[in-house]
C-alpha cells in the first residue's frame, strides 16, 4: 500500500489535519474523508467547475489540486459560506432568482462567483460570463445565474 502523507491545513476557518495518499485530489479528500460533499464531481478533470473551492483567495478546481498541496494553506468550501442563521448574499440571490434547477452546479458556481466578487465588486454581465465560463450548468442556460450574481453584487455593495 502507498505510504500516506499527513497534511495540516485550514478549512473554512478551522484547523484540520488528514492522512491521504500522495496522488489523491483535494476533491476526493474533501468528499470522502472530511465529508464536505458540497463540492461536486462532474468530470474529475477540470472541465466542469462543479468542484470549485477557494484556495488562499483564488478559485481552483479541487479535482485538479493534489491534497498534499493544501499543507499550510487556507481552503474555503461552500460549507464555509453561510452563517448559522443567515445565507451569503450569493446564496440568497441564487434562491431569489431561481438560479438553480437541479442544483448540482450551484456550489461550484457560488464559489466561483464569490471569487469574482471578492476582487471585482461590480462586474459587468460580460465580466461575469467570462469568469464563470469554467463552470458548466446544463439546466439553466445561465441567464438566471448571471442575474443572481449581479443582484448579489448589488446587495453586497449596498451593505458596505
Amino acid at each position: 500500500m502507498t505510504k500516506r502523507v499527513h497534511v495540516e491545513t485550514r478549512i473554512n476557518g478551522r484547523e484540520v489535519d488528514f492522512l491521504c495518499e500522495p496522488g489523491q485530489s483535494l476533491l476526493e479528500v474533501l468528499r470522502d474523508q472530511l465529508h464536505l460533499t458540497g463540492a461536486k464531481e462532474g468530470c474529475n478533470n477540470g472541465n466542469c467547475g462543479a468542484c470549485t473551492v477557494i484556495l488562499d483567495g483564488r478559485i481552483v478546481d479541487s479535482c485538479l489540486v493534489l491534497a498534499p498541496e493544501v499543507e499550510g494553506r487556507e481552503v474555503t468550501t461552500i460549507e464555509g459560506l453561510a452563517g448559522p442563521e443567515h445565507l451569503h448574499p450569493l446564496q440568497q440571490q441564487f434562491l431569489e432568482h431561481a438560479a438553480l434547477q437541479c442544483g448540482i452546479c450551484t456550489p461550484g458556481l457560488i464559489m466561483a462567483a464569490k471569487g469574482l466578487l471578492d476582487q471585482n465588486p461590480a462586474p459587468t454581465e460580460e465580466e461575469i460570463r467570462l469568469w464563470l465560463a469554467g463552470n458548466l450548468c446544463r439546466c439553466t442556460g445561465y441567464d438566471k445565474i448571471i442575474r443572481a450574481v449581479q443582484a448579489a453584487a448589488q446587495q453586497m455593495e449596498a451593505r458596505v
Binding site: 468528499r31 470522502d32 465529508h35 464536505l36 460533499t37 458540497g38 463540492a39 461536486k40 464531481e41 468550501t77 461552500i78 460549507e79 459560506l81 453561510a82 445565507l87 446564496q91 441564487f94 434562491l95 431569489e96 431561481a98 438553480l100 442544483g103 448540482i104 450551484t106 456550489p107 457560488i110
Partner: peptide
C-alpha cells in the same frame, strides 16, 4: 416563492447520488 429545497442546495447540504455513504 423560494423553493423548499433551496437552502440545502445553495449550502452544499443536499445529498446527491455520490454523496451517500
Amino acid at each position: 416563492p423560494i423553493r423548499p429545497d433551496g437552502v440545502d442546495k445553495v449550502t452544499g447540504r443536499a445529498i446527491y447520488g455520490a454523496d451517500v455513504t
